[in-house]
Design a protein around this nucleic acid. Structure first.
Lengths: 201, 201
DNA sequence: TGCTTATATGCTCAAATGAGCATATAATGA
DNA sequence: TCATTATATGCTCATTTGAGCATATAAGCA
C-alpha cells in the first residue's frame, strides 16, 4: 500500500484505535485530539481515502478502515504454509482467524494459574486456563477443583468414592491428593478446555 | 440480570449486532429498522438502560453495551477468588474478561505448532502460537523462523553472526541448530508473544 | 518560474441527532 | 377502581456533524 506521511500515519493510528474501541470518530473529535481544525482533518482523511486506507460508509461517523487495511480487527490470522520469498501475511497464507468466541463455545470462565504443579501438561505459572463449568469431570482430564477454599488445577481421577487430584510436575516434589468426593471440603468447579498464555517479557 | 420483554430483547439484539459491526446506531436508524418512531425507540432504550443492559457514553451515537452485559456475550470472564458456598460466575468473582484483541495488541498472526520440540516452554503439539511479525528477535526469546522452507518455533540466540535455534525438550534427542544469520536458508518471521491451546478431547 | 502535493485556517449551511414535552393505549396487579 | 409498567405517536429545539468554498504556506520537482 502507498506509504503515509508522518501526519497521515498519526491520524490513521488514532482513527484505527477509536474504531477498534467501537467509537467511530467525528471529524471534530479527531480535530480536537490532533490539535487541528475540522477542515484540516478532512483534508487528511481525503488523502487517507485516496491512498486506500479509509472508506466512508456514509452518514455521520461513517469513517471505516478499508477492507484491505483492516486485518487486526478480525482476530488473529492463522498462517498455514509460508513459502520462501513470500511476505508473511500474504493473503494466500491465511488459513483462518483466531477468535476466542469461536475457539471455545458455550458458557465458560477463565482462571489465572499460580504455581508450577501442571507444567508437564504445558500449563505454566501465569497462564489462563479456560474452564467449562461442571460438577463432574471425565476420568483423567484436567479439572479445576475448590479444595479447602483454595482453587487448584489438577488431573482428576475418580476411584470409587475417592477423588484423586494428580499434579503434572515430575521435577518438583508434588504428590497426588486423595479425598472422599462426598467431603465438604472439596467441590469440582469445571473442566479445563483450553489454555492461554501471554508471553512474559 | 433483570429479564427483558420480547420487544426489548428484539431492540437489544439489533443494537448488539450493530455495535459488534462497529456501527453505533442512532435512535432514528433503530426506529427505521424496527418500524417505530424515534421517540418509541428512546423509550425502549430508557428501559434497557434502567435494566443495566445499555449505557450512554454521551454524544451522538453514544449507545454502548454495559460492562456487565458485554462480558456475557463477548469474551470469557476471568474468575478471581472463589468462596466456598458461592456460585462460580457470581458477579463479585469476576475480575475481567479475556478478549484476544485486548490481550495481545498490534499486528499479529498465529501458527499451529507441530511437534514437541518446545514442550519444556509449555508449547505443546497442536497449540497455536501468537506471533508479532519482526525480522529480529530479542536474545533468548522464543521466535518463529523459516528454515529451508520449513517453519520452526525455537528459542533464538544471536552469537555474533551465528543464529542459534535452541529447542526446549530435554527428554527427546533435540539438538540446537546453528546457522549463519546471513544465510539464504534462514529468515526470522517474528517473536512469539503468546500461546493458545484448545484442550484435546 | 510554475506545478503539484501536503498541511492548515476560517466561514457557512443543510442534514442528522439526542432530548424535552404532551399525550394515548393496553396489560398487570394491588 | 387506580397506579404502574410497557409501548407508542407527534412536535419542537439546540447541538453535532459532514461538506462546500476561499485561502494560505511550505516542500519537492521539472
Amino acid at each position: 500500500m502507498e506509504p503515509l506521511t508522518p501526519r497521515q500515519r498519526q491520524a490513521l493510528d488514532l482513527i484505527e484505535q477509536m474504531l477498534a474501541e467501537g467509537n467511530p470518530p467525528s471529524q471534530r473529535q479527531l480535530a480536537k485530539a490532533l490539535g487541528l481544525t475540522q477542515t484540516a482533518v478532512r483534508q487528511l482523511i481525503r488523502y487517507l481515502k485516496a491512498k486506500g486506507y479509509l472508506v466512508d460508509i456514509g452518514g455521520h461517523r461513517g469513517l471505516r478502515l478499508s477492507e484491505r487495511y483492516r486485518g487486526r480487527t478480525q482476530g488473529i490470522p492463522i498462517i498455514g504454509r509460508v513459502a520462501a520469498g513470500q511476505p508473511i501475511l500474504a493473503q494466500e497464507c491465511i488459513e483462518g482467524y483466531l477468535q476466542l468466541e469461536r475457539l471455545f463455545g458455550g458458557s465458560l470462565f477463565a482462571l489465572k494459574v499460580t504455581g508450577d504443579s501442571m507444567v508437564d501438561d504445558g500449563i505454566l505459572d501465569g497462564d489462563y486456563v479456560v474452564v467449562r463449568p461442571s460438577d463432574q469431570i471425565a476420568d483423567g482430564r484436567i479439572g479445576v477443583v475448590l479444595l479447602d477454599d483454595e482453587v487448584t488445577v489438577k488431573r482428576v481421577y475418580l476411584k470409587g468414592d475417592v477423588l484423586v487430584l494428580r499434579p503434572a510436575n515430575k521435577r518438583a516434589g508434588y504428590r497426588p491428593i486423595s479425598i472422599r468426593s462426598s467431603s465438604r471440603n472439596v467441590r469440582v468447579l469445571g473442566e479445563v478446555v483450553g489454555c492461554i498464555r501471554v508471553q512474559a517479557r
